Simulated assay, not measured.
Amino acid sequence: MFNLERFVEDCCTAVRRDRTHKSVSEIFDRAFRDPASIATALGEPQKAGLTPIYCSSDLTILNLVWKPSMMIAPHNHNMWATIGVYGGREDNIFWRRIKDDPNGRIEAAGATALSTGDYAPLGSDIIHSVANPITKLTGAIHVYGGDFFEAERSEWDPENLSEQDIDQEKLKALFND
């Protein structure tokens, strides 16, 4: 059975030993064998939200609930992340910078679909966009190797794919609308 306090403690301990995304892989492997117990521990998602579970300078753990058909424009984290879906589906498109582009534009470079029980590590240089392609809420735990809220990050305009500073307030508002 998933225990949120134990999950947080285990992630903190792991990051103290190894500051890479590999440190939390075993923890995710154990936790996401039983995604229903994660949903039970966190509560069945009732509405979209970005809920901090733990935050320090070297680790952030969030419970993200995506509303149906919700999409987030391409963005980076400038830190590693591990994402696990405990209910629903989260589609990620991965992007890469276009070499020598003066506007910092990007182009698609791959994709992955995470369904209930799936998790995936993302390196610190990953740029991705996220979508919930289904008609129900999707719940996911996101663990970041740093302070998610204080990091300098970028996002890319969804229309012209040019780089700009991320607007944290706009991001939070997407989850609250």
Score class of each variant (00 low, 15 high):
1 M>R: 10
1 M>Q: 11
1 M>C: 06
2 F>L: 09
6 R>I: 15
9 E>A: 13
11 C>L: 05
12 C>I: 15
12 C>L: 12
12 C>D: 10
12 C>Q: 14
13 T>S: 13
14 A>L: 03
16 R>G: 06
17 R>S: 13
19 R>I: 14
21 H>C: 13
21 H>S: 15
21 H>R: 10
22 K>Y: 11
22 K>H: 14
23 S>F: 08
25 S>I: 13
29 D>M: 11
32 F>D: 00
34 D>G: 07
39 A>N: 08
40 T>D: 14
41 A>Q: 06
44 E>A: 12
44 E>P: 07
46 Q>N: 08
47 K>Y: 12
48 A>V: 02
50 L>T: 05
51 T>A: 09
52 P>E: 04
55 C>E: 14
56 S>N: 09
60 T>A: 07
62 L>E: 07
63 N>Y: 14
65 V>L: 06
75 H>P: 05
78 N>K: 11
78 N>R: 09
79 M>S: 04
82 T>V: 15
84 G>R: 00
88 G>K: 00
92 N>I: 07
92 N>T: 04
99 K>G: 05
100 D>M: 02
100 D>H: 09
102 P>I: 08
108 A>M: 10
108 A>C: 06
108 A>T: 10
108 A>E: 15
109 A>Q: 04
110 G>D: 08
112 T>V: 15
114 L>I: 07
119 Y>Q: 02
120 A>L: 15
122 L>H: 12
122 L>I: 11
123 G>D: 14
123 G>Q: 10
124 S>I: 09
129 S>C: 05
129 S>Q: 06
136 K>T: 06
138 T>P: 01
140 A>S: 14
141 I>S: 05
141 I>R: 02
144 Y>R: 01
146 G>K: 03
147 D>P: 01
148 F>Y: 13
149 F>A: 09
149 F>T: 12
152 E>C: 07
154 S>K: 10
154 S>A: 12
154 S>P: 04
156 W>H: 02
156 W>Y: 05
156 W>N: 01
158 P>A: 05
158 P>S: 05
159 E>Q: 13
160 N>E: 11
166 I>P: 00
168 Q>K: 08
168 Q>L: 15
169 E>L: 09
171 L>F: 13
175 F>I: 06
177 D>K: 14
